[in-house]
Nucleic acid binder design. Structure first.
Length: 873
RNA sequence: GCCCGGAUGGCGGAAUCGGCAGACGCGUCGGACUCAAAAUCCGAUUCCCUUUGGGAGUGAGGGUUCGACCCCCUCUCCGGGCACCA
């Protein structure tokens, strides 16, 4: 033993016999649980099932972060608690191992991402194992394992088959630093979510998933989920459903009609101009000759602008007049039509009716270009007062002909009704949610299992009734390219999966927006055989009959793909015929508890819901939603109150903590730090307190010989105070675990130990219950003491203590006595003593008496078993 | 700008059906043990007033109430989300 100079030689020897050797204890029990298969989950049996899921980590090269054990410990406490309560618990772990950092590492070192990733996984697994979690390691999964991504590809092909995966050439977010495109969700304030690099718009051909087809369902189902409100709110806001009206405005002097979308049909009489997005298809047809040059110039300028510039709210609005006029559908008035880039081409119809009096943006624009502002809604109740403009809230209609005096909401309905009769308006619903950009120009991701072929070859293949290539063929072909050179997407048959990521020499991305996979020539160029479904590398010679040439898709899937369905793979990690086995899915269904960071509120959690809902629709799973109960653990900050970062030098290394204090101390301390969901700073001195608690427990439970302390007596008889405190603690720990209030559960255990330490003798039963309560939090020390105290089987297999309601019932209570709301004394009385008696005793209390004597009592308040308040003049 | 969430001792945090504010831990101070130190144990620890005792106090100001950290209004600061979505 290394005494580190802390003990004298003699003292060291003496302490050795019974000191708390967490290193040895923790390693021993971790090995035991593993060998024993303590946490192996059975797919069935008589017990009710409980599935606890952690957001699986990305195994970064930096190793485990101090934040990882926070969520993992919380879920582990719940898992171990539920096991002790008699549930069949599944608590698995795996690796979300595709992603950019491994690829960037490969660029710097030349080490293949697969090799580097395997190393990182190795390290993560070891670090996590040392924390003693109740994990069923037989179910470990890895998204980069071909046997895993076989099914990621399979699900993609199902989406493709059902018309939910398509190719589109559109302006997309391109990150030059990362050399890849990014999804809307991955761009935050004009910068990449990962790495915080600038992004720009580029016109590129990309794979897109039709998540918008699920917008309504994604929104509706949120209702029934037990999720944090803020997360639900974020998803609702991201989906951005709005109900409004589409209206047709005919253009004066042409047959052209312009359809706009508005949520404020009630303000129709306040329209003083219209705006089209510069990209609107009608622009060329309506622009007058006179205005053509300035319109062309404006469109050129906007096209050159980055979206960042265009969406900058601080900038002044710009626009240009087209020379054309629309006709007001009700009044027939002429309304000038403008172009302005504050109208987005991708939302609604890309055109608006501008009502400057009741919309801040239109108001700004009208002021800038000196367009008329006409008020048609005034605030309620103040018909005399002048309503300040722009007035964007609801109110009462004015200047609106026959509808004057109507409330905004009634006005909307009335005007819509009128437009419907005239056949130029209809209800419409719009969403902010855009389809999910699904391809990345990267190497380290799942290859998209598609081969591109010429049109004739596609038609020939599609016409073969028995061709394996028809397995995932969509009703409407997916194609891209110009007429004459169009390429058509052929989905690989399931028999060709997994489509293995080929090794490449060079991981460098290209500026042109092509994946490094494009350089794997032998892999990219293939010949496929329609009748048999075979695919082989293209040869040099002429094609054999029945074979056609194709080119593999070289984009890969984004990192989110693997995490969209991993909660299902844990149920049957080795199933060879489907993503998830039928029987296992039926039994486990989905996680009952899911914990992870709030940063995934709209990314992973939205994508995973989409895939899961789709899998439900095609009958692959039996639940509509993947995650019924969700919890976000907060972030642990550095000691200086800042986010931990290498540059700040405030990073706390979990290995160092485990080495110095042990896994139990780390677990307990992370839970004790504060509310699980809160952002809270680390305190390196605070863990000393936890360490002290564990050593005190050790000293209390064991004698100098390391055997059960002589303080313990066999009979289970305790004094009343001990009995009640014990039962209160059992109750509180149970409730706190269920409600994830783990910080107060730890406090309560400390309170109990503080009390028990003061007793000369204590029943051994109390000692055992203490260990059982502690076991989910600090499993190693609990197991060790349990065995030393005579436990024959693992403490994990013992039932969780239950509180005795009889013992919880108080016989006497302290009632607080106030005079005019000020604390003046207290009386100790039997529970449920009558009001009269309590008041009488309270009045007699000498501390109270001096404050009420000689004064008139105006009122006597009595809160049973709690408080008395005398109100005196 | 809009929408959420938060603000409690020297520090992390307890206490919300409106009923003893400051549990538990850290730190600090005092004491015991020790030649001494560490470790450990015991005690004190919101602030102010000289006291037995009294007063103030949960970001600021107002309100409701016998009574407010808790409910209502106004404001300040901090954190998070969205950001021209018509």
């Amino acid at each position: 033993m290394d005494c580190k100079g802390k003990f004298s030689a003699g003292g060291c020897q003496l302490l050795m016999a019974d000191s708390y050797e967490f290193k040895e204890i923790e390693a021993r029990w971790q090995d035991f649980w593993q060998r024993d298969g303590t946490f192996r989950a059975e797919d069935g049996g008589g017990k009710p099932k409980y599935y606890v899921l952690d957001m699986f980590p990305y195994p970064s090269g930096a190793g485990l972060h101090i934040g990882h054990p926070e969520g993992y410990t919380a879920s582990d406490i719940l898992a171990r608690y539920r096991i002790a309560c008699g549930w069949n618990v599944l608590h698995p772990m795996g690796w979300d191992a595709f992603g950019l950092p491994a690829e960037q590492h490969a660029l710097q070192t030349g080490i293949a991402p697969a090799i580097n990733t395997a190393r990182n996984v190795e390290r993560f697994r070891e670090q996590i194992r040392r924390l003693g979690f109740a994990i069923d390691w037989d179910r470990e999964i890895n998204t980069t394992d071909p046997e895993y991504y076989r099914w990621t590809q399979w699900i993609f092909l199902q989406l493709f088959k059902h018309g939910l995966a398509y190719v589109d050439e559109r302006p997309v977010w391109w990150c030059q630093e990362l050399r890849t495109v990014l999804a809307n969700e991955e761009v935050i304030g004009g910068r990449s979510e990962r790495g915080d690099h600038p992004v720009e718009r580029r016109q590129l051909r990309q794979w897109v998933l039709r998540i918008t087809a699920y917008a309504e369902k994604l929104l509706e189902n949120l209702e029934g989920l037990d999720w944090p409100d803020s997360t639900k709110r974020q998803q609702r806001a991201w989906i951005g459903r709005s109900e409004g009206v589409e209206m047709d405005f005919s253009v004066d002097g042409s047959g052209e009609k312009i359809c706009i979308y508005t949520t404020r049909a009630d303000t129709l009489f306040g329209v003083t101009y219209m705006v089209l997005a510069p990209e609107h298809p009608s622009v060329d047809r309506i622009t007058t000759e006179e205005c053509a040059p300035s319109v062309a110039e404006y469109r050129r300028r906007t096209a050159a602008k980055g979206d960042l510039e265009r969406t900058d709210l601080a900038k002044e609005k710009t626009g240009v007049f087209t020379g054309a006029h629309a006709l007001h559908p009700l009044t027939g008035q002429k309304i000038p039509i403008w172009l302005a880039d504050y109208v987005l081409p991708t939302y609604g119809t890309g055109a608006i009716m501008a009502v400057p009096a009741h919309d801040t943006r239109d108001y700004e624009f009208a002021r800038r270009y000196d367009l008329p502002i006409l008020q048609v809604v005034r605030s309620k109740g103040d018909s005399e007062e002048v309503t300040p403009l722009p007035h964007c809230d609801r109110g009462v209609l004015c200047n609106s002909g026959e509808w004057d005096g109507l409330d905004s909401e009634a006005g909307k309905e009335a005007i819509l009704g009128c437009l419907e009769k005239l056949n130029c308006g209809r209800r419409a619903v719009n969403y902010k949610l855009r389809d999910w950009l699904f391809s990345r120009q990267r190497y380290w991701g799942e290859p998209i299992p598609i081969v591109w072929v010429a049109e004739d070859d596609y038609r020939a293949l599609a016409a073969l009734p028995d061709s394996p290539f028809r397995e995932f063929l969509p009703e409407t072909p997916v194609a891209h390219g110009d007429a004459g050179h169009r390429l058509f997407a052929i989905p690989l048959p399931a028999s060709q999966l997994p489509l293995i990521l080929p090794p490449v020499e060079d991981y460098h991305p290209t500026d042109s927006g092509e994946s490094p996979l494009a350089k794997a020539k032998n892999w990219v160029s293939v010949e496929i055989h329609g009748p048999t479904g075979q695919v082989r590398p293209a040869g040099d010679g002429p094609l054999s009959p029945g074979w056609v040439r194709g080119r593999r898709e070289t984009n890969t899937m984004p990192q989110w793909a693997g995490s969209c369905w991993y909660h299902l793979r844990y149920l049957s990690p080795h199933c060879a015929v489907a993503p998830v086995g039928l029987e296992e899915e039926k039994y486990w269904q989905r996680p009952d508890f899911y914990i992870g960071g709030a940063e995934h509120a709209v990314l992973h959690l939205l994508y995973a819901r989409f895939w899961h809902q789709f899998l439900y629709d095609i009958g692959a799973v039996s639940t509509r939603e993947p995650y019924q109960r969700l919890f976000h653990q907060g972030i642990i900050l550095g000691e200086d109150g800042n986010k931990m970062s290498k540059s700040r030098g405030n990073v706390v290394n979990p290995d160092a903590i485990v080495g110095e204090y042990g896994a139990d101390a780390l677990r307990l301390y992370e839970m004790f730090l504060g509310p699980l969901e809160a952002v809270k700073p680390w305190d390196s001195r605070g863990i000393e307190g936890i360490s002290r608690f564990l050593r005190r427990l050790w000293q209390w439970f064991l004698g100098a010989d390391g055997q059960l302390s002589s303080r313990f007596i066999k009979i289970f008889v305790n004094d009343e105070v001990t009995d009640r405190l014990l039962n209160e603690t059992v109750q509180k720990v149970r409730n706190d675990i269920e409600g994830m209030r783990l910080n107060t559960a730890v406090s309560q255990l400390m309170i109990l130990l503080n009390h028990l330490q003061g007793l000369r003798f204590v029943s051994i039963g109390v000692g055992r219950i203490f260990l059982q309560l502690l076991a989910p939090f600090a499993p190693h020390i609990a197991e060790e003491l349990w065995r030393r105290g005579g436990g024959k089987e693992s403490i994990v297999r013992t039932p969780f203590p239950e509180a005795d309601p009889e013992k919880l019932r108080k016989k006497m209570v302290t009632i607080v006595v106030q005079v005019n709301g000020r604390l003046r004394g207290e009386v100790y009385v039997p529970v449920d003593l009558s009001r009269e008696e309590v008041l009488r005793l309270a009045r007699c209390n000498p501390m109270v008496e001096s404050h009420i004597v000689g004064r008139e009592i105006a009122k006597e308040i009595h809160v049973p078993n709690r408080l008395v308040n005398f109100v005196v003049h």
